[in-house]
């Protein structure tokens, strides 16, 4: 199967409506490449997205998909994956969707460690509503709703994930196509919840966290002596506010996904034409 699938098979015939130059193009391309490289096909892939610029991704990709409500894509992905473990589940969102309205779900999805991939297009701004502060915006980032900056520290999604027991925590840069696709591929291959925060610059509303900024400041862990299985080393890097890292910061190689821990293996979509065998025992129990 893998040899037949090309990444363009995951492209829908709908042209993306993102602004020209948007970081989301690169993020999506990398996801499609990674899906193809891991032997998935559009018919056995389920993409879930929420609301915001990132939410449109299901429309621009070709697969089974749900474009849901704001912030709740992870619970949807959880339900899809548990009901049919044969599906490759890819959840996509933005920093607002994942770390603001959906922050509660993010923490619990990390804890639950369901075998799916979560890609966050982090542009540190609300783009679709035309430029308000996001949970990852800098403290002094001036926007229409925060004229003097939010005056509160940005959320550190990697630290949230690590403290919630995350088993795969990575970061990539949408324009570094090869590395980004490689990191997403590793997230897909990971047995458990594969989380990738992707710097996806907004060229229209964010003039601080730009392509140039990331190009100049990113430190690729591939160039460092970093052991991703070392949680303490990961912690130091994740809490280092002065650096923007690219690569797999942490991976628990002993990770056991939710389904395995709970003994779930069956496809729940197939049921008999009547009550299941043994259903009368349920009645007798009440005797």
């Amino acid at each position: 199967m893998s040899s037949e699938v090309r990444f363009t098979d995951f492209k829908s015939d709908k042209q993306p409506t993102w602004c020209p130059g948007c970081g989301d193009f690169g993020t999506m391309n990398g996801m499609m490449k990674a899906l193809a490289e891991t032997g998935n096909s559009p018919d056995d892939t389920f993409v879930v997205a929420g609301i915001g610029c990132s939410g449109k991704i299901g429309t621009f990709m070709h697969s089974y998909a749900l474009h849901g409500v704001h912030g709740r894509a992870l619970p949807v992905g959880t339900g899809v994956k548990l009901a049919n473990p044969d599906l490759e589940v890819m959840v996509a969102g933005g920093d607002g969707d994942g770390y603001s309205i959906g922050a509660g779900h993010f923490v619990h999805a990390v804890r639950r460690n369901v075998d799916m991939t979560y890609v966050v297009m982090d542009n540190r701004i609300y783009g679709l509503t035309k430029g308000q502060a996001s949970p990852t915006s800098r403290e002094d980032f001036e926007t229409s709703t925060t004229p003097e900056g939010p005056k509160q520290p940005p959320v550190n999604p990697l630290a949230l994930a690590l403290s919630a027991g995350g088993s795969f925590i990575a970061q990539s840069f949408s324009t570094d196509a090869q590395r980004h696709a490689e990191i997403v591929r590793k997230a897909i291959e990971h047995d458990g919840f594969g989380f990738v925060n992707v710097f996806s610059p907004c060229v229209t509303f964010n003039d601080v966290d730009t392509y140039d900024y990331f190009r100049d400041s990113i430190v690729d862990l591939a160039d460092e002596d970093h052991d991703p299985t070392d949680r303490d080393a990961a912690k130091d890097k994740i809490l280092d506010a002065d650096k923007e890292y690219q690569g797999v910061l942490y991976q628990n190689e002993e990770s056991v996904p939710y389904s395995e821990l709970h003994g779930l293996s069956s496809d729940m979509t197939e049921i008999p034409d009547g009550a299941p065998e043994g259903a009368m025992d349920l009645v007798r129990e009440f005797y």
Binding site: F46, L66, G68, R72, P75, T78, V80, K81, N84
Partner: peptide
């Protein structure tokens, strides 16, 4: 973790065909 999540999980499972 809350009812928001509960209904979305159920929705996901239903979309999957369960």
């Amino acid at each position: 973790e809350d009812e928001l999540s509960a209904i979305n999980m159920a929705l996901g499972a239903a979309r999957a065909g369960a």
